[in-house]
Design a protein around this nucleic acid. Structure first.
Lengths: 155, 155
DNA sequence: TATGAAAGTTTTAAATA
DNA sequence: TATTTAAAACTTTCATA
């Protein structure tokens, strides 16, 4: 499932990240190649899973998502069963945009954009009724200073 | 700059989030309308800024981004000048994918995907040499359990 | 809202370096 | 083996009913 990724592939990926809507011709021009070779590279990168979903960035506030919480979770349970149930709970909840298992003191971090504090509380109550967690700290975002999905492929 | 967003708009936005590569015809079929009205709605939503950048999701690990840190920052400085400098530092660093100013005890949270721990340390050293921060805690992700850019527009 | 036509784009295939 | 050319199928965009 791996693919060798050269400098031209990286340039193509950087362009696609920046604007997935531009035409093959434009991308080819940007990376100093032409349509067909670029198209073949994109196809290979897609097949290898390096290029995944194509999507649009939406204005969360305009759509009523006015609050965003980062949730730090500590648990005392470390059995496979519990972890299974916890993972399933997170994956099933559409308000959880990100979930990471961490090294160290804090076990998990979540990013949860919601309409308002009440919606967060509903989420929180639902979560703790499904799985036991030892300690939960919610950090409320006051201001999104920066938000990008781009990886720095040229840095 | 605001626009009224009705149920059909939401369905269109949900489809675009899910797959921005599909054709107008497909989207029209999914939302139970036809090409022209869907096209006009998309144009309006784009002009209003509700629909932003069109992008692709890349496989970070395949591209060598094998570590991801969440960084919790406390500061004792709360003057405008300091904040200005701190914001600029974050915006200028391409490895910072997310930065939020928080309510409460912890002042900022960052998400920083990097190649490895050494790359994180370089970022950290560069940051603290640019701006004074009181206390920094780095949480290292061991496993990305869930990661999506999608807002739950139907929930 | 629907139809349709012009312009542009993607995709495949064949030809060439 | 990789690139260029060429052409068919499909999409977007926009004017008009």
């Amino acid at each position: 499932m791996t693919v060798r990724i050269d400098a031209t592939d990286r340039k193509i990926l950087a362009e696609l990240q920046r604007d997935a809507g531009q035409s093959l011709d434009e991308i080819a021009r940007q990376v100093g190649s032409s349509k067909t070779p670029v198209w073949n590279r994109i196809r290979k990168l897609r097949e290898a899973g390096v290029i995944g979903q194509q999507t649009v960035v939406l204005d969360a506030e305009a759509l009523g998502f006015e609050a965003c919480f980062f949730v730090l979770i500590r648990t005392s349970e470390h059995e496979a069963d519990w972890q299974q149930a916890f993972l399933k709970a997170l994956k099933d909840r559409p308000e959880v945009q990100e979930a990471h298992r961490l090294a160290g003191d804090i076990d998990y971090i979540l990013k949860v954009p919601v309409q308002n504090a009440r919606a967060y509380d509903k989420f929180y109550q639902a979560l703790i009724s499904e799985v036991r967690v030892h300690n939960v700290t919610a950090l409320l975002s006051m201001e999104e200073i920066k938000s990008t999905t781009m990886l720095p492929l040229n840095a």
